[in-house]
């Protein structure tokens, strides 16, 4: 969107070109104004993701029957065996923004809900993300088989974590991929929140096992757990790997991020930069891109050479100036 904006101003620029004295001021001001308004520019650029009510699964007939109860925020019960509160409420707002917004309740919860109160056995339905997505590939459901292969190698499976499934991390009622206008910091916070909801013991200023990591909180605000806790090889830009590594196998090499390759970070940050440029336009995205990583441009040899050369130049200049001053004083005295 910023490109049309720029071309709007160019006829004015062209007129001003005839007046040599003001062309620079006007030109610079245009860019400055452009740079100051990233949010305004992006607001126009982004699509209003409000969907028509007719498309929404929760407004379909049988869904409305379900939602007569399940819209309530307090809809919950205490499980007799585990004594835990099981939340049964559906956040309509979050659902309508999720990837599954078109699905009616019965599209997944097909059997056993005709009677009220539902039988406790109804809850034992064996929902399978991978096979369901496979069945509905023609309708645009992304294939999850690659994810399943990664997931099967992950520490969550190999360590036989009890009752671990897709739903341990993903809520199908709210799930949406990282993207849109969500700032990177929020994506990071949200995805890390998934990990930390189970790994509660890591919620300390210096988390267990991360003592070696300098400024852990600064890292956790900028990097996803997954950026270090998944293999470097075989990454795709669109999504993090589901092969979550055990602590011992995770990446601990600082230079994997803070060096020329920046392999760990390239996934989230490069992908986002591309995606956001499409949405926000050329200029605002260029100015606010977040892909610069401290240390990426560091080269100790070059750093040293340039610092020494700069120092010698300063020294030379100072010596020259001092000698000039001495010569000047001498001349004054002799006169």
């Amino acid at each position: 969107m910023s490109l049309p904006l720029l071309s709007d101003t160019s006829p004015r620029l062209a007129r001003v070109l005839t007046n040599g004295t003001t062309v620079f001021v006007v030109g610079l001001l245009c860019v400055l104004v452009l740079a100051m308004l990233p949010s305004a520019v992006s607001a126009v650029a982004s699509d209003g993701s409000v969907k028509a009510a007719s498309q929404q699964g929760l407004f379909k007939d049988d869904s409305q029957d379900c939602m007569r109860c399940h819209w309530m925020e307090t809809m919950a019960y205490r499980d007799r065996e585990t004594r835990k509160i099981v939340n049964l409420s559906i956040d309509t707002e979050a659902y309508s923004h999720s990837v599954h917004f078109e699905l009616a309740c019965s599209d997944c919860h097909a059997r056993g809900y005709a009677h009220y109160p539902h039988r406790s056995s109804s809850a034992d339905e064996d929902l399978q993300c991978v096979s369901c997505h496979e069945q509905h590939q023609d309708e645009g459901a992304p294939n999850l088989i690659g994810l399943e292969h990664e997931y099967e190698k992950s520490v969550h499976v190999t360590e036989d974590v009890e009752d671990f499934s897709c739903f341990s991390c993903h809520n199908a009622h709210t799930f949406k991929p990282a993207g849109g206008r969500e700032p990177i910091a929020e994506v990071v916070e949200r995805t890390n929140g998934v990990c930390l909801s189970c790994h509660e013991d890591l919620l300390t200023p210096v988390p267990k096992g991360h003592e070696w990591l300098p400024r852990p909180q600064a890292h956790w605000n900028a990097v996803r757990c997954l950026d270090c806790h998944t293999p470097v090889e075989g990454r795709v830009p669109e999504r993090p790997s589901h092969n979550v590594l055990a602590a011992a196998e995770s990446n601990q090499l600082c230079v994997e991020c803070h060096t020329k390759g920046s392999e760990l970070l390239s996934q989230l940050y490069n992908y986002r930069a591309e995606q956001e440029r499409e949405q926000k336009g050329f200029f605002s995205r260029a100015l606010y891109n977040e892909s610069y990583i401290v240390g990426m441009s560091r080269n100790s040899l070059l750093d040293w050479i340039s610092l020494i050369v700069i120092f010698l130049t300063l020294l030379g200049v100072a010596a020259h100036g001092y000698a000039r001053y001495r010569a000047y004083r001498k001349r004054e005295v002799s006169q």
């Binding site: 062309v23 610079l28 400055l32 740079a35 100015l287 606010y288």
Partner: peptide, 16 residues
Amino acid sequence: PVHNTCGVLLTFSWLA
């Protein structure tokens, strides 16, 4: 962002 903005402005300054 300041570095990026000034860099873009410097480009225009150079063209000027």
